[in-house]
Simulated assay, not measured.
Amino acid sequence: MLRRWIMEIIVLLLFSLFVYAATSKLMDYKVFLVQMNDQPFDDKFSILLVWGLPALQYLIAGLLIFRRTLLAGLYGSLALMLIFTVYITLIKLNFFNHIPCSCGGVIKQFTWTEHLYFNLFFIIISLAGIVFHKWLRRNVKPTFEKIQLS
């Protein structure tokens, strides 16, 4: 029972994160586009990222809400958070000269160190979600019995 409750909290946190992040980027589309153009990669990728990143975040959120796709959503969450964390680690190691934060909402107020800790937290809960999901699938009995016809 406790593991199911924890699993629900994990899913709710991840779902909220991705919906909030995607929505805040799209609500401030022009600012997000300028920030993406100011990133250390070729500008031709900016338009793809400006639309693709929120779409991917919504997709992951959508995967998280259905039982059949939950594990895919957890792995997607883990992968995206790992990518963001590697990027932030490179920023912290001064791999790039100047990096504007392209996050939206309250997250854009974070320092890079706070961003790193924030991402590590979501990596940990994504991993915990994967572990709990696999444990629950192994240990939960079906909720229905086969009907035997005489």
Results as ranks from 00 to 15, higher is better:
1 M>F: 14
2 L>C: 05
2 L>T: 14
3 R>H: 12
3 R>E: 15
4 R>F: 12
4 R>L: 10
6 I>K: 11
6 I>R: 11
7 M>T: 13
8 E>G: 09
8 E>K: 12
9 I>D: 02
10 I>P: 13
10 I>T: 09
11 V>T: 13
13 L>I: 13
14 L>C: 07
14 L>R: 06
14 L>G: 06
14 L>I: 02
18 F>E: 03
19 V>C: 06
19 V>L: 13
20 Y>H: 09
20 Y>W: 09
21 A>F: 07
21 A>W: 00
22 A>N: 01
23 T>C: 04
24 S>N: 07
25 K>A: 07
25 K>M: 11
25 K>Q: 01
26 L>Q: 02
28 D>Y: 09
30 K>D: 14
32 F>S: 07
32 F>V: 13
35 Q>C: 08
35 Q>R: 04
35 Q>V: 09
36 M>H: 05
36 M>V: 06
36 M>T: 02
37 N>Y: 14
37 N>D: 04
38 D>A: 08
39 Q>H: 10
40 P>W: 04
41 F>H: 01
42 D>F: 00
42 D>V: 03
43 D>E: 04
43 D>I: 03
43 D>P: 00
44 K>W: 05
46 S>C: 05
46 S>N: 03
47 I>Q: 01
47 I>N: 04
48 L>N: 01
48 L>S: 02
49 L>K: 00
51 W>N: 11
52 G>T: 08
53 L>I: 07
54 P>T: 08
57 Q>M: 15
58 Y>E: 00
59 L>G: 12
59 L>D: 12
59 L>K: 00
60 I>K: 02
61 A>P: 08
61 A>I: 15
65 I>M: 11
65 I>Q: 06
67 R>D: 15
69 T>G: 03
72 A>F: 04
73 G>L: 15
75 Y>H: 07
78 L>W: 14
78 L>Y: 11
79 A>D: 07
81 M>F: 15
81 M>Q: 01
83 I>R: 03
84 F>Q: 01
88 I>N: 07
90 L>V: 01
91 I>W: 03
91 I>C: 09
91 I>S: 03
93 L>I: 10
93 L>K: 06
95 F>Q: 05
95 F>D: 05
95 F>Y: 12
95 F>P: 00
96 F>S: 06
97 N>C: 04
97 N>G: 08
97 N>K: 14
99 I>E: 11
99 I>N: 08
100 P>E: 13
102 S>A: 13
102 S>D: 13
103 C>T: 11
104 G>S: 09
105 G>R: 01
106 V>T: 09
107 I>Q: 12
107 I>P: 07
108 K>E: 10
112 W>T: 00
113 T>H: 13
114 E>D: 10
114 E>T: 03
115 H>Q: 11
115 H>D: 08
116 L>Y: 15
117 Y>K: 04
118 F>E: 09
118 F>N: 03
120 L>R: 00
120 L>D: 03
120 L>S: 00
120 L>M: 09
120 L>Q: 07
121 F>V: 11
121 F>W: 03
124 I>A: 14
129 G>Q: 01
132 F>S: 04
132 F>I: 14
133 H>V: 11
133 H>T: 12
134 K>R: 15
134 K>E: 14
135 W>M: 06
135 W>Q: 04
137 R>W: 14
137 R>D: 12
137 R>Y: 13
137 R>P: 00
138 R>K: 13
138 R>V: 10
140 V>W: 04
140 V>F: 06
141 K>H: 09
143 T>A: 06
148 Q>C: 08
148 Q>E: 15
149 L>H: 12
150 S>C: 10
